[in-house]
Nucleic acid binder design. Structure first.
Lengths: 344, 344
DNA sequence: AATCGCCAGGAATGCGCATTCCCTCATCGT
DNA sequence: ACGATGAGGGAATGCGCATTCCTGGCGATT
């Protein structure tokens, strides 16, 4: 038997059952500035329970002129980097009674634009852009314009790790972290390095490369430009880049992959070529992804408190809007493990 | 300078600018059943662009009586099992113009109830419950009642891998997969097994244990009840359970962890105790988490097409409601890797 | 040529709620 | 004793949109 959709009880139904006016019912259930007599109030609450009443959030949103929805845009939720950030966002959102609407842009800038527009349509309280890779000036202009529209209507925008647009930002110290990592690796005795970097248009990846280079410069390591390979920011990208590096021949004793996932791919490539780990070539990553903490050998990396990053984004959203964009910085911490044994 | 929130353009503004009525503007932008003259239509579209108009989704939802939002409830989005499912849900949702609102219940049944209620308030088109662990009869009754309310108002509910409630379900063949895995492991020569199982109230975990037992029974393996340990469904749970197993002493040659994440914890425990891998004790998991495909030694497991599971859930949501709950079954596939070498 | 039917456009209605405005009545001060 | 005050209740309004109903014009039919 197909149940017909029965429109659910409205506030009007509750008011009628309680024998009060709509206004009184509304005030009883939401606690407005106005007082409601205790007896009436109780009758209303009972009626609401009786009817299994749940306020229509759309109608409330329209009447109030605001919603409790925040949008979260990530490249790919299946990527542990983003799912960790998302976990932080969702935890913080729950603490503040916010609902999170999420979408994977699958690294397509147009998709990002579309979703911001959709969230504007939803009159979302805020939008959090994690890992936006918009870089092309034209797209950047369009995104900036779209975000400006979003903010003009009262919404808040927060970017994670992308400081090219004048909006609130949670900045991961990719440069500083990569620099510290480079210095640590030189400290272990390495001199000749290679880097498996992400796509050139990904700011995160570029910063990590730049930081690593500056760390080498400071500590006395070498990075032959031929030893800098680019590929996608994924396991397969790491595998492919490492394979190319080995094919072209290299004298590097240590490879820095721009994130942990690429590092795992690189390790897979080394194994495929019969190069043991830890062994002739040390490998380091970035992020310290939780799920990868137990791989063998333990991966040297830079720990980023990704859940905190997500929480910080929500925190920024809840701050009153300032006169200038705020920036919240989050530090990374070098974690040395067995994938980079000291060079004897 | 703090920009004041400027209410965004309404359809009325667009109509006025185009010099047409509200009705014509609405019909022009949404393509209703009614036709609009080409010239007027064009004027409206131009006006909309000019004003940077975006329809207020709340108002549309109220006028239409439905939304394009689907809710997704997971235990923990940072868990790769759930983030893979979420990726599938989001991909399929995008294909159909749906927006996904997501929440982590952090394994609290009350939280699950609260979110379903919140989604009812949102008048969401559907709610997808991934890995609900509600088991306690009272909670199950309340959840069933909440879902019934949800469906009574026209929403759809889909559960993933939980067939205790009369709603549409995507059923992972945990039993069959675990059974096949057990048979394969016996085929490798193992006879004495141990199982690191998840919490007793988690159906997924129970099914995997039951399936594994039936596979052993069929193929001739032994599972001493003392060798069945329970712990949380996480890496730490696997570590802890494996440690306890080793502490109490065991003659098992193969350990089945109820999911990959626990298996990783178990492998960490073995290493902590100085037991090499692959070596005296073989380890198998379940899920074939993408991020863990490259661990060493390669983890024998049962591959579950988790993204397809998410997509299947959205697919069910979009089917016209049937007279009885539908069940869509998804098979697993045994993948033998180096963590379970043949026993010589 | 008169009538019918059809179609594009506009006015009006209602979705469900918060809130403003208005009214009543009890309480208090002088 | 009587006006001032304020609290609590209800009627009415509007949020932004889709949609129904209505109207006028135009071509087709007899």
């Amino acid at each position: 038997m197909v149940d017909q959709a029965v429109p659910s009880a409205t506030l009007m139904d509750v008011a009628r059952l309680a024998g009060v006016s709509l206004a009184t019912a509304s005030r009883s259930l939401n606690g407005s500035t106005r007082q409601v007599g205790e007896d009436l109030r109780r009758r209303v609450v009972l009626a609401a329970v009786e009817l299994n009443y749940t306020a229509n959030a759309q109608a409330q949103a329209m009447a109030r002129g605001r919603t409790d929805v925040v949008g979260l845009l990530v490249h790919d939720i299946a990527d542990p980097y983003f799912s960790s950030i998302a976990a932080g966002v969702m935890r913080a959102a729950e603490d503040h009674g916010l609902l999170v609407t999420m979408a994977s842009t699958l690294r397509r800038p147009e998709s990002e634009l579309d979703y911001v527009a959709a969230l504007r349509g939803q009159r979302a309280r805020a939008v959090v852009l994690a890992g936006s890779r918009v870089d092309d000036p034209e797209m950047l202009r369009r995104l900036g314009s779209e975000l400006a529209s979003f903010e003009a209507t009262g919404g808040r925008a927060v970017m994670i790790s992308q400081k090219k647009l004048p909006v609130d930002t949670v900045l991961l110290e990719n440069r500083a972290g990569a620099k510290a990592l480079a210095e640590s690796l030189v400290g272990l005795g390495h001199r000749r390095f290679a880097v498996l970097s992400g796509p050139r248009d990904l700011l995160t990846s570029r910063d990590r490369l730049a930081g690593f280079q500056s760390g080498l410069a400071a500590a006395g390591g070498e990075l032959d430009p031929r030893n800098v390979l680019q590929d996608s920011f994924t396991r397969d990208g790491g595998l492919s880049a490492m394979t190319r590096l080995l094919d072209q021949g290299t004298d590097a004793t240590c490879v820095f992959a721009a994130n942990d996932v690429m590092a795992v791919g690189a390790m897979a490539a080394l194994r495929q070529q019969g190069i043991g780990l830890p062994g002739r070539i040390a490998v380091a990553g970035f992020d310290d992804i939780l799920t990868l903490r137990d791989i063998t050998p333990g991966l040297t990396t830079v720990r980023l408190p990704l859940e905190e990053v997500g929480a910080a984004a929500i925190d920024l959203v809840l701050q009153p809007r300032g006169d200038r964009p705020r920036v919240r910085r989050v530090k990374g911490q070098v974690v040395l493990r067995d994938s980079t044994p000291p060079l004897t």
